[in-house]
Write a protein that binds this DNA or RNA. Structure first.
Length: 256
DNA sequence: GTTCTAGAAC
DNA sequence: GTTCTAGAAC
């Protein structure tokens, strides 16, 4: 199976046929999988199931293709993805508290020019701290302010905006989007420009450490225990180990 | 996606 | 000299 079409093949499969290492959950309309190359501490993909719509597989090929098809059907598909994404976000937040003792942001959105076929909604923690984040295009494709990562709420708002605006967003130029990926490396927390990827990654870790420290102080002030289960294997319950193992096994499969 | 590598950056 | 990027090949 080519990497480019792997998500399309998942969209055609019955949820029961997946190993637990790939499938995180499913609903009537969608499946949620572990991103095979998570770019944050938590990173999932929500995909519309091919059998649960009368749109063609090619209409479901990408957000661009979907929005060019029937507008009201497109809205239904995106709204259904949004429903599942809310649940995934809640799951991520519970895991955040369990593993790290605090919650931070979760981003939900589409890549404007994805590299793989079949619509997929990213749901990921807002840290971009991951071994799998290696290149400038990885980082810029999730940077929340660059415009390549299309936040779900923005996409939903297009449906209710002026038709001309909708048309404008649907016809967004791919060339411009790809140029965005080559722009400089600006920290999404503090907007400082970083010289290169290794420096950026160290900096992102420091920014996340600051969030963790702040949350820990806050817990102390409130008189709660400041001690948190450390994110190490020995500190994890069996269920958490399973989730962690599932995540690392999922690495063999998804996302380009 | 990964690996390899030329050449740029430092 | 070493580190890093980015394009080609797979």
């Amino acid at each position: 199976m080519s990497h480019l079409k792997i998500l399309q093949s998942y969209a055609k499969r019955s949820p029961e046929s997946f190993p637990a290492s790939i499938l995180f959950g499913h609903s009537a309309k969608n499946i949620t999988i572990f991103d095979g190359f998570p770019k944050s501490k938590f990173h999932f993909l929500v995909l519309p199931r091919a059998s649960e719509t009368d749109l063609s597989l090619s209409d479901l090929g990408s957000l661009h293709a979907l929005l060019k098809a029937d507008k009201s059907k497109a809205k239904e598909v995106v709204a259904a993805l949004a429903d599942d994404a809310r649940g995934v976000r809640g799951d991520i937040e519970r895991e955040m508290v369990k593993h790290y003792g605090f919650k931070w942001d979760v981003w939900t959105g589409f890549h404007a020019a994805p590299s793989m076929v079949h619509l997929h909604l990213h749901v990921l923690s807002a840290d971009l701290c991951s071994d799998k984040l290696k290149h400038k295009k990885h980082y810029n494709s999730f940077h929340p302010k660059l415009g390549f990562f299309l936040h779900l709420d923005d996409v939903l708002s297009w449906f209710d905006a002026e038709p001309t605006y909708y048309e404008h967003m649907v016809s967004m130029k791919k060339l411009h989007l790809l140029i965005v990926l080559k722009e400089g490396l600006t920290c999404f927390h503090c907007y400082k420009e970083m010289k290169n990827i290794p420096i950026l990654k160290d900096h992102l870790q420091e920014e996340w450490d600051k969030l963790a420290t702040k949350a820990s102080r806050k817990r102390k002030r409130k008189g709660e225990s400041a001690d948190v289960a450390v994110p190490e294997e020995k500190g994890l319950s069996d269920q958490e180990k399973t989730l962690k193992r599932a995540k690392s096994e999922a690495t063999e499969n998804v996302e380009a």
